[in-house]
Amino acid sequence: MLKEKGILFDVTLCIGCGSCYDACKEANNLPKTSEDFLKDHLSDNTFNVIEQYDDLYARKMCMHCNEPACESVCLVGAITKTPTGAVVYDADKCIGCRYCMQACPHKIPRYEWGTTTPRIRKCNMCAERVSKGLIPACAEACPNEATLYGDMDQLIAIAKRRLQENPDKYYQHIYGLEEAGGGHVLVLSPVPFEQLGYIPELPKEAMPEFTKRAMEKIPSVVVGGGIFLGGMYWLTKRKNQIAKEERSKHEN
């Protein structure tokens, strides 16, 4: 059984060198989209960006949720989770409804608006490289170990230890551990996360739960509704019949 893998990104260690940005572009064969990588934004040709907030740098990429909203909403199952935890996309299945983009709580998926055969584009945690035994390009390229790739349980342990050992250095929260049900990308920061452009106040529940609660009621609606309608039909028909008989009796 494969162990679940993930990425730990530590803002305090990031020097904003752009190695992960370049490595991501290279690994995914993406064209150059910006002169200055710090000013670039996520797009169909950029799956990983580094945003500068004063002297801090924050990476933005797919969070590879444990129970991804995008996976749950995709009607043809084009988005799936691999055994290692990466959220991957199959363009051959996709019909292009873009519900995944609407549903993603982290606003990550991007679309190839410019073509007539568009695909959803986002980080897939280098699923191909990982299947060949390599590690994701961004983690490999990072010169300062700000991005770590490894088993999820180990990463969580490392993150917790860092928070414990340096309580002054870190804002005491692991972003991505519980947000939207948690995911496979964890972030540590010296300041509150909304100051770094991470979306705050995400529910701790996995997003598909919100839909599940409504979907669960479907069978009872069908059964109850069917019985109710059938009953009403029988009742009103009977009522009309009795009224008719009464009338004919009166006439006689």
Partner: peptide
């Protein structure tokens, strides 16, 4: 509105019963 209108028939045999969109379709 579909990005890949030529794939419109996919929901007929590619199922994801957790999707509201699937149910609507």
């Amino acid at each position: 509105d579909l990005g890949r209108p030529e794939h419109f028939y996919h929901p007929l045999y590619m199922w994801n019963i957790h999707s509201v969109m699937f149910e609507i379709t």
